[in-house]
Simulated scan of single mutants.
Amino acid sequence: MMMEKLEYTNIFESITEDPALAADLQFRSDLLMTLIDILESKGWKQAEIAKVLDIAQPRVSELLRGKISLFSSDRLIGYLAKLGYRLRPSMTGDQTVICAVEVERDVA
């Protein structure tokens, strides 16, 4: 007996049948990974991150460990703003939606 091969364009579709929830989880995952990349590029220690983001050090640890279930999209976007970044969604001529993360001001 041959098993059916399942294919997903969003890994979160494999854990929920709700397309809105899968999209939210993917968006939060993308935001979280972007934040981690930014923070790692700055070379800050967790105490420095906590001060800049105005959060407790254990929360920084959860963020850096990718605990997606603990962070809302709004919260993650707020962290980006505190770091001097903003999301800029737009649509290209071929109707592709893109979302750039842009530096608005440099937070040292």
Rank of each mutant, 00 (worst) to 15 (best):
K5Q: 08
L87D: 06
Y79H: 09
T92A: 04
F27I: 02
E4T: 06
S73T: 15
E7G: 07
A56R: 15
L35P: 04
L53F: 00
E48C: 03
I15A: 13
L6N: 08
R28W: 09
A56M: 15
I11Q: 15
T96S: 02
S61D: 05
L39R: 08
A20I: 08
D18E: 10
G84Y: 09
S73H: 09
K42M: 08
R65G: 01
V103S: 02
D18L: 08
A22M: 01
E104W: 15
R75V: 06
D18N: 14
D54K: 11
V107E: 07
M33N: 09
I15R: 15
L6T: 13
I49H: 01
I36V: 09
L80V: 03
L63N: 05
D18Y: 14
L64K: 07
R75E: 12
Q46D: 13
D106V: 03
D54L: 02
D106M: 01
G78K: 14
I49A: 00
K51Y: 12
L35I: 04
Q57V: 09
S41R: 15
R65I: 10
F71A: 04
T16G: 07
L35W: 08
I68Q: 14
L63V: 01
D37L: 00
G66Q: 07
D24H: 15
I68E: 10
S29E: 15
M1T: 06
Y85N: 02
A50S: 07
E102A: 10
G84P: 09
R86I: 14
D18T: 12
Y85T: 04
D106N: 00
S90V: 09
V97T: 06
C99N: 04
M33C: 04
E17Q: 04
Q46E: 13
E13V: 05
L83C: 05
S61I: 12
R28F: 14
D30V: 12
K45A: 15
M33A: 05
L31P: 06
P58Y: 05
T16I: 02
L64E: 00
E48Y: 13
I77Y: 11
S69Q: 14
G93V: 01
M33E: 09
E48K: 06
L76F: 01
L35D: 03
A100W: 10
T34G: 10
A22W: 01
L64H: 00
Q26F: 11
E4S: 02
N10R: 05
F12I: 09
